[in-house]
Amino acid sequence: MFPRKIFRDLNGSLGLNTIKRWCKMIRDTGSIQLSTSPGAPRLARTSKTIRKVKQKLDKKKTVSARDLAKDYGISKSSAHRILTEDLGLYAYKVQIEPKLTDEQKKKRKKFVNWIDNNFRKVDTMRILFSDEKLFDLDGIYNSQNQRIWAASRDEADEKGGIKMGQKYPQKVMVWLCVCSKGVTPLVIFDRGTVTHAEYIREVLPVALEYGNKTFGEHWIFQQDGATPHTHHLTQEWRQDNFPSFIDKNHWPPNSPDLNPLDYCIWDEFARCVNWKKITSKPH
């Protein structure tokens, strides 16, 4: 081994004396064994502090790096390195799921068994899922992910860092159906609400026309348990006109995660709208 050549190859990132000492270790023992870690000693990320952080996490599941830094008198960056480098942890956002009662869980199991016994995989590809969603002039924004990079709060505000929200924004309700083949035309209710009569008159014929045109005679219509959907006249209209549908006794309550519209498509739909240009309800 030639310490000077190694020193030149490393462009001086390690001292020549250190390289000589390590080369001697390799010649004498066959490996480099250091009694202490190279570099400056740790003052914040000590084994004692790391152990305390781990114990705190075991007791309290949601702890921020800022709180840890304040509790143990260390910097926020040191607290973050303890979490990620020393403990090998990752930060995950809390996910929101529907809160289900025992009765709702039973209905879900009943629904799964009903689907399993009465639907083939090819049948599920012919389900026309429907849903309504309210949109208002405030549009949508994500307070967690939409960030403005600036040198100060004032500069961030000038760059659009303030989102103005109305106390009672004007709203419209949008109805849409989606299936494996595509989406139906939109039906928009200016008043922001819909009655069973409006639902029968303006919505169901659109779904019927699209379903027949897309799938022919064999397809299934789905809707949730909203009052206009479960009204007896709505049920009768569907019974007389649709080839098949999931009735109110089978679709489980509080189940947005079972509908692709609620699960993801409404969110994608809203992101396609340029909310900065929407200034009025008719617009």
Results as ranks from 00 to 15, higher is better:
F242Y: 09
N142G: 03
L137P: 02
R27N: 11
R120D: 14
F7S: 14
D28T: 11
L89F: 02
K277A: 15
K171A: 11
V194P: 03
I74C: 01
S31P: 01
W219G: 01
S78K: 00
D86M: 05
Q235Y: 09
R81S: 09
R51H: 12
L68P: 01
A226S: 11
K60F: 08
S280H: 10
L14V: 13
Q222G: 03
D190L: 11
H232A: 11
C264P: 02
L14W: 09
D102H: 10
I162Y: 14
Q235F: 10
K281D: 03
S75C: 02
K60P: 00
K56L: 15
Q223F: 04
N212I: 01
D86T: 01
P169K: 03
R8D: 12
E236N: 12
Q223A: 07
T101V: 06
P41G: 03
D131E: 10
V172W: 05
S255L: 06
G139K: 05
R191S: 15
R271G: 04
T230E: 09
A151T: 14
W114M: 02
R4L: 10
F242I: 00
Q170E: 14
D123L: 03
M1Q: 08
C264G: 14
R191T: 15
F7R: 13
K54V: 01
G30R: 05
D86F: 03
K181P: 01
F189V: 04
